[in-house]
Amino acid sequence: MLEVRGLEAGYGKVQVLWGLDLQVADGEFVALIGANGAGKTTLLRTISGLIRPTSGTIRFRGAEITGRRPAEIVAQGIAHVPEARELFPLMTVQDNLELGAFARPAAWARAAQTLTEVYRLFPRLSDRRLQIAATLSGGEQQMVAIARALMSRPEVLMVDEPSHGLSPLMVQAVFAALREVSQSGVSVLLIEQNVRQSLRLAGRAYVMENGRIVLQGTGRDLLESPHVKEAYLRL
């Protein structure tokens, strides 16, 4: 469904991605792990159109979407939950969520229904629907960011470090929600530092180092891999 081939991208003269290949199949849960600076976030930013790649292709459902603008990528059905969450800080939770469906007519038509669904997924947000986003806790803001992305009724959900800075209890809630999203048929591409948990959750996973994929396999295989154990699980 989502297919990245030979992708190279970076910031100005600093190249970050060096010929990266990656695929996410329909309904699949894929984890992407790697150290800080490996290029995971750059990959997501390139897929969602915030950065233009210097070479390589990105295909979605067979059609090439390389270098398209973010608005077109969202309209295609790819949603990106960035690590910094990027909420609209002075708006209410509900306004933030509604804006998630705004740019995609098919999603806007069903916005009321989707809203009920995301409130069921995150009951905490339902209680805080009229609260200003900037006043929420970090975990709640993360929930809003994921819920806002879901409002566009995406076929692929890309989530960047959702556990970053959250309490263990919040991490559990966020991961449980991602599992539920995946079970509803949405493909998920998850970037995580929380390697053990994301590998357990994922059907398939990639290990990224220095802008390249160095290892891939099922989540279970990678959990047993000596390289992963040594470099990421510190056993």
Binding site: A75, L99, G100
Partner: peptide, 9 residues
């Protein structure tokens, strides 16, 4: 950035 990511032009 948030506006870009929700698909606003």
């Amino acid at each position: 950035t948030g506006a870009h990511l929700v698909g606003l032009d």
